[in-house]
Simulated scan of single mutants.
Amino acid sequence: MTEYKTEAQKKKFYRSGDWESLRQQALERDNHECQQCKREGRVHVDSIKVEGERKSVELNVHHKYEIEDYPQLALVLDNLETLCLNCHNKMHNRVFGEQKKKRWDDEMW
């Protein structure tokens, strides 16, 4: 079984034709909409390609069970869901621009 522990192994996987094909299936199944936003009653759809411009990345296809821990699920459609960048970052605890909560609410003096 293939492992996806190193950056090089992950890059190779995410550049593979098998992944790209399955990724497109997941996007189509999810109607090119963020599934987490949908669960929260919001709508976040993919950007539209404008001729002559680079398409902005709005959506990622997320592995519910990460490939480094569950390599056998790397190419299983039911393990994938479409997420917007913001929701995908939250799933991975990559939150930018927010201040960490203070440990105590006491005043500093």
Results as ranks from 00 to 15, higher is better:
M1E: 09
E3M: 13
Y4W: 06
Y4E: 02
K5I: 14
K5H: 11
T6Q: 01
T6K: 01
T6S: 14
E7R: 14
E7C: 07
A8T: 10
A8D: 04
Q9F: 02
K10T: 02
K12W: 07
R15E: 15
S16I: 03
G17D: 13
D18V: 10
D18H: 11
D18A: 15
E20A: 13
E20N: 12
E20T: 09
S21G: 07
L22T: 03
Q24V: 06
Q24F: 02
Q25W: 03
L27D: 00
L27R: 01
E28H: 05
E28V: 12
E28N: 08
D30T: 07
N31V: 05
N31G: 07
H32C: 09
H32L: 08
E33R: 12
E33L: 15
E33Y: 06
C34V: 05
C34E: 02
Q35R: 08
Q35D: 04
Q36D: 12
Q36A: 10
C37T: 03
R42M: 13
R42D: 13
V43R: 13
V43C: 10
V43E: 10
H44V: 15
H44D: 13
H44P: 02
D46L: 03
D46A: 14
S47Y: 11
S47G: 12
S47F: 11
I48S: 09
K49R: 12
V50M: 04
V50D: 05
V50T: 11
V50A: 08
E51P: 01
E53S: 09
R54I: 11
K55A: 12
S56F: 12
V57C: 04
V57F: 00
L59N: 05
L59C: 04
N60F: 06
N60E: 15
V61S: 05
V61Q: 04
H62C: 02
H62Y: 09
K64R: 08
K64T: 05
E66Y: 13
E66L: 07
I67G: 07
I67N: 12
E68A: 15
E68N: 14
E68K: 15
D69M: 12
D69A: 14
D69Q: 14
Y70I: 00
Y70F: 06
Y70T: 00
Q72E: 15
L73T: 04
A74C: 06
A74S: 13
A74W: 02
A74Y: 06
L75E: 02
L75K: 01
V76Q: 13
L77I: 10
L77M: 04
L77G: 03
L77N: 01
D78R: 11
L80Y: 01
L80V: 05
L80W: 04
T82C: 09
T82M: 06
T82L: 06
T82Q: 05
L83K: 06
L85E: 07
L85K: 14
N86L: 11
N86H: 13
N86S: 13
N86A: 11
N86K: 15
M91I: 01
H92Y: 03
H92C: 02
R94S: 06
R94E: 08
R94H: 11
V95S: 02
F96Q: 14
G97A: 04
E98S: 08
Q99N: 12
K100L: 10
K102V: 05
W104S: 12
W104N: 09
E107W: 10
E107Y: 12
M108R: 10
M108S: 07
M108Y: 10
